Amino acid sequence: MSPEAARAMRIRSAIAVAAIFLALSACAAETARTKPSNPVPLLSNVLVRSNAVTLNDLLPESVPFSLHREAMEIPLGQSPQPAGTRVLYRQQLQFLLREHSSMLASLEIPRQMVIRRASRPLTRGEIIRTINSALSRQNPAGDYRLDPKEVQLSVPVYVTRNDPGLKVLTISSDPFRGETQFVLWTSDEPNILPFTITVQRALKLPTLVTRRGISPGEIVSSADFAMEMRAQKKNGSTPLISPRDLAGLETRAAIRAGQPVDLDFFKRPILVKPGALATLIVLGSAFSIKTIVEPLEQGVLGQEIRVRNTETRQVVQARVVGRDRLMKSLEGED
């Protein structure tokens, strides 16, 4: 080998060694950056209060605020139901953090993390107050004093709020078994399923009845009804409605005086019909116009239907606001 060739080989070898050294140095730097000497140990048991879990819920409080802030933006799925648990395994968390490699490298992840939802059981007092309140709204003149010993809840119901918006959905009576059942629901925590409360007594319940006989197709008012306390003679649900709920509705069939009623006895009346001219009020930002239109379809209160201007023959959408009366607002339109 000539001296020139030997010198060229030594130069190439030196370059190769230098490249390897630089690559190893870069790897070491990356490792030092992504794998700190003191990784953050995640909590293996946590208590959450919100509907969703983030990585921040698994961090100890002692870590820097900047890490908490970053972890708040990394979702880990839904929280368990109140009083429930969710187990998150190491492999699952590693998969969820696959797009956050720097964060993942800075954590010490236990084999499994048990997530519990902060909650409390509904009290018997809350349930009784809700039932009494619902009965009182139906008949303000009634006197309701349920004995706590009569109220049975088959399983505890857990909630996460101080006031979960507890409401009575339906009331049903079983006079043969001497029981009254109330279906309740936490309206401010809608993910919790409705549940049943049983009272070991066939209660007299507020019942909406007619004050007079009413013909089919008649529009009723709240004065046509009264609330009476009646013992239930057969199984069935008592609707939670008041006379105001029925005002302005139309009867589907004849109803005799004193007959108990519910919403199924009525329908929303047809206020606008095709072939019968109606008045349309057009509202602008600084004006209003009244014109005569021909409805092209029937409509009930609040419904939008198509109408045709009798002069221009233009067809527009308008909202039913009364008997043979419609309204259209031009505000916000181009």
Score class of each variant (00 low, 15 high):
44 S>I: 06
44 S>Q: 13
45 N>G: 10
46 V>L: 12
49 R>M: 09
50 S>M: 09
53 V>T: 08
53 V>R: 01
55 L>E: 03
57 D>P: 15
58 L>D: 01
60 P>H: 09
61 E>M: 02
61 E>T: 03
61 E>V: 02
61 E>Y: 04
61 E>I: 02
62 S>D: 12
63 V>L: 04
63 V>P: 00
64 P>G: 00
64 P>K: 05
64 P>F: 03
64 P>H: 02
65 F>C: 02
66 S>K: 00
66 S>M: 06
66 S>V: 08
68 H>C: 07
70 E>T: 08
70 E>V: 05
70 E>C: 01
76 L>M: 07
77 G>V: 03
80 P>K: 09
81 Q>A: 07
85 T>H: 08
86 R>W: 07
87 V>Y: 06
88 L>K: 10
88 L>M: 13
88 L>C: 01
89 Y>G: 03
90 R>I: 04
91 Q>C: 06
98 R>C: 15
99 E>P: 02
100 H>I: 02
101 S>H: 12
101 S>V: 06
103 M>S: 05
103 M>N: 08
108 E>K: 15
108 E>I: 01
108 E>Y: 09
110 P>E: 02
110 P>V: 12
113 M>L: 05
113 M>Y: 03
114 V>A: 11
114 V>H: 09
114 V>N: 11
115 I>V: 14
117 R>K: 12
121 P>F: 04
122 L>Y: 06
122 L>A: 03
123 T>E: 08
124 R>G: 13
124 R>F: 03
127 I>L: 12
127 I>M: 13
129 R>I: 00
130 T>S: 15
133 S>I: 01
133 S>W: 07
135 L>Q: 10
137 R>V: 06
